[in-house]
Design a protein around this nucleic acid. Structure first.
Length: 275
DNA sequence: GTGCTTGTTGGCCA
DNA sequence: GTGGCCAACAAGCA
């Protein structure tokens, strides 16, 4: 499920419940797939008694910083979630890591197990954090950076290119469709065939969709919406893309679906023409 | 039973 | 070496 804004929403859930609190106990099912490359016994030792100091999200990754220079990284994969439960919580089948404070249980669950836990102790942030590309909403994301990337991926459909995290960190399937729809670019358009004006529109809508999605889904400042997606307006493609017989909220014409770049893609043929 | 699913990775091939 | 495609991973849901 989670892309950029959903990831930040889940991060805030844990952060609001437990920032400044101390972890009294760590529980895990310790599945190798989720903890690949991580010494989970060391993780449990380091986090037990540690205080949650702060957290941050970047792309589809989040990091929770604890006292003792410990960093817990979580990637939610396709079906991961972070929840907050009462302290008496008992681990369920798909739970992978639960941190207990005095009053709460911070639960990471992921039934499909595409998610991942990372862990690092040290003053400097680890490679799994520092190698994440600069945010789309940062000053480093410019048309001048997008253009050569599209040229290098010239023969790939633009939809597939938008999903490449090395240049479009945090963009996932629905955000890619939302961006292309707003920019009026057909998802099958070859990345190398975009005009300078098309690249500019794409760049701008990347930023707009990231900003609007973060506001609507994760909320501004410390505020957290009561649930995912409750604040996403009907004017977005998002609201219509999975509806049977869905219509484009801009043109009122029927939406189209196909597999493009290996992913189910939704677009508005009346608005997004192949050029 | 069938055919999906908001993600990532590694292998194959041009 | 680079770019593009695709299967695999695993489980729930309609």
């Amino acid at each position: 499920m989670p892309e950029l804004a959903e990831v930040d929403y889940f991060r805030k859930r844990w952060d609001q419940a437990a920032a400044g609190k101390t972890v009294l106990r760590v529980a895990t099912h310790d599945r190798a797939r989720i903890f690949r490359g991580v010494d989970s016994a060391a993780l449990q030792r380091a986090l037990t008694g540690a205080r949650l100091k702060s957290s941050e999200a970047a792309a589809k990754q989040m990091a929770f910083r604890f006292s003792g220079d410990a960093r817990l990284g979580i990637h939610l994969g396709m079906s991961g979630e972070l929840e907050v439960k009462p302290a008496g919580y008992e681990l369920k089948k798909h739970d992978h890591l639960v941190l207990f404070t005095a009053k709460q249980a911070l639960v990471f669950s992921d039934p499909r197990m595409f998610g991942r836990v990372q862990f690092h102790v040290g003053k400097q942030p680890p490679a799994w954090w520092t190698k994440i590309a600069p945010p789309i909403l940062s000053a480093q994301f410019t048309p001048a950076v997008v253009a050569p990337f599209l040229r290098r991926r010239a023969r790939a459909p633009i939809k597939a290119v938008l999903l490449m995290q090395e240049r479009f960190p945090g963009i996932g399937n629905w955000m890619a469709d939302e961006i292309l729809w707003r920019a009026a670019i057909h998802p099958r358009q070859k990345a190398g065939s975009l005009t300078a004006a098309g690249i500019k529109r794409l760049w701008k809508e990347c930023r707009t969709v990231c900003r609007l999605a973060l506001d609507a889904i994760a909320g501004r400042g410390r505020r957290l919406p009561r649930d995912l997606n409750v604040n996403i307006p009907e004017s977005w493609l998002f609201r219509h893309r999975w509806r049977p017989g869905g219509h484009c909220p801009k043109t009122g014409k029927p939406l189209a679906h196909a597999e493009i770049g290996g992913r189910t893609t939704c677009w508005s043929p009346a608005r997004q023409k192949l050029k």
